[in-house]
Simulated scan of single mutants.
Amino acid sequence: MVFTSPVERVVPDRLGDERESLTQQLDFHRATLLRKLEGLDGEQLRRPMTASGLSLLGLVKHLAETEHGWFLRIYGGSLEPDLFSTGNDPDADFRVGPDETADALVGQYLLTCERARAVVAAGGLDDVVTTPSGAEANLRAILVHMIQETARHNGHADIIREAIDGATGH
Rank of each mutant, 00 (worst) to 15 (best):
A135T: 02
C113A: 14
A102C: 09
H153G: 04
H29R: 02
E67F: 09
T23S: 00
P12F: 05
I74F: 07
A118I: 11
I142E: 06
R35E: 08
C113H: 02
V120F: 02
R46L: 13
G58R: 00
E38A: 13
Q44V: 02
L139V: 05
T50W: 01
A102T: 02
S133L: 12
V11S: 14
E114H: 06
S5F: 14
I74P: 02
T130Y: 08
A116P: 00
I159V: 15
R14P: 04
T130P: 02
D103Q: 10
E162G: 13
V120N: 06
I74C: 04
R95W: 13
G16I: 00
T66W: 11
G42Y: 02
R9F: 08
S78Y: 04
A116D: 00
S21Q: 13
E136L: 08
V129C: 01
D103S: 13
L33Y: 07
A163Q: 14
A137G: 07
H68V: 09
L26W: 01
L125S: 02
P90E: 03
D165L: 12
A51L: 11
L26K: 07
A118K: 04
L139P: 02
H62T: 02
L63V: 07
L56Y: 07
G169C: 15
L56V: 11
I160C: 01
K61E: 04
P48I: 08
G124I: 04
Q25P: 00
A116V: 01
R117D: 11
A64D: 03
G97E: 07
R95M: 15
H68I: 08
H153T: 09
V11W: 12
I159N: 14
G87N: 06
P48H: 08
P81E: 03
V144Q: 09
E162N: 11
R46Y: 13
V144I: 15
H153N: 04
V11I: 12
L143H: 08
D165S: 12
A92N: 11
L125R: 01
E67R: 03
E149C: 03
T131S: 14
D99L: 15
L125T: 10
